[in-house]
Design a protein around this nucleic acid. Structure first.
Length: 295
DNA sequence: AGCCAGGCAAGTG
DNA sequence: CACTTGCATGGC
């Protein structure tokens, strides 16, 4: 076992592990204490979280100004990338117009960051997210890993990586329904087939202009505008993407009524502009977590 | 008991 | 293009 720590004093704008991992933007991490992600749970501040990916297991916790980690391999680089520790939050929020909702959200969750998740797990988790609560989406991804993911031994425990596209494409719809995926089961299976066949190359999508990239992702099954925006924001580095889910639509009604332009495409343009363009997705994710936690 | 949850696909007008 | 309907499931 290797271990190490990342001093958080050097991270511009600070870092909050619990809100970053439990705000409903990533379903690639689990708490060692096994608790489901609930916005009113205040016990995650010093908990261990782990992820398993590509044969490796990494676990982290926040302790005394450090991000401590233990892993099957050196994890400094992975953590900086996946938790976006190089993002300069003060500079990013200079680009976001001073706005009461976003300001309140920042005050409530200082140091919350976007994540940079692996493409396929991110895609599947947001296909599963349709008409579903955050804690249940998390439970589905846990079940998919348990049933179909590679087993990895680490520190006397067995962990499961998220399954490969090939493995999920080989699952039957009935097997997926048994995990509680409901009508999303065929979407996941068919999208896994497309991913395994290389029909849509994430690297190609990443190179496109934002709206073209959003359209391209909809070649997957179960992916419309909203899910595509989530994948762009949380996995493909499109920080301007603003997923228009039920919470943000309500926020638009209450706080930005001028941005409601009817269609997804036009409302998206308007709210992206209201959130300052380039880093609008940061504002969206803060607003989403803040509104949901106050409900 | 009914309503809702980080919507989408397929069908119609 | 806009609009409607059906779709699983669990928690409140």
């Amino acid at each position: 076992m290797e271990s190490g720590s990342i001093p958080l004093a050097d991270v511009p704008g600070g870092f909050d592990l619990q809100s970053t991992l439990e705000s409903g933007q990533t379903f690639c991490w689990r708490r060692e204490d096994g608790r489901a992600y609930e916005t009113d749970d205040a016990h995650g501040g010093s908990a261990w979280y782990y992820t398993a990916t590509e044969g490796e297991v990494v676990r982290v916790r926040h302790r005394e100004g450090q991000l401590e980690w233990e892993a099957t391999t050196d994890a400094d680089g992975l953590l900086v990338e996946r938790l976006r520790l190089d993002d300069d939050l003060p500079t990013i929020f200079e680009a976001v117009p001073d706005d009461p909702l976003v300001a309140d959200a920042r005050a409530a969750y200082p140091g919350m960051r976007l994540v940079d998740d692996p493409f396929f797990p991110c895609l599947v988790s947001f296909i599963c997210s349709a008409q579903m609560r955050v804690s249940r989406i998390h439970g589905m991804q846990t079940a998919l890993a348990r049933e179909f993911g590679e087993a990895i031994e680490f520190d006397g425990e067995t962990y499961h990586a998220f399954p490969t596209p090939e493995r999920l494409a080989a699952a039957t719809e009935a097997e997926l329904r048994e995990l509680g995926l409901g009508y999303r089961a065929p979407y996941v299976r068919r999208s896994a087939e497309l991913a395994a066949a290389g029909e849509v190359d994430p690297a190609d999508v990443r190179a496109k202009e934002y709206e073209d990239a959003r359209d391209a992702l909809q070649a997957f099954v179960g992916v419309g505008d909203k899910v595509a925006d989530c994948v762009l924001l949380f996995s493909l580095d499109f920080l301007e993407a603003v997923p228009l889910d039920t919470w943000i639509r309500t926020a638009i009604e209450d706080h930005y009524p001028d941005c409601d332009r009817g269609s997804y495409a036009e409302t998206s343009r308007a709210i992206r502009e209201a959130f300052g363009g380039e880093y609008a997705g940061y504002a969206q994710t803060y607003a989403f977590h803040y509104l949901r936690s106050r409900y």
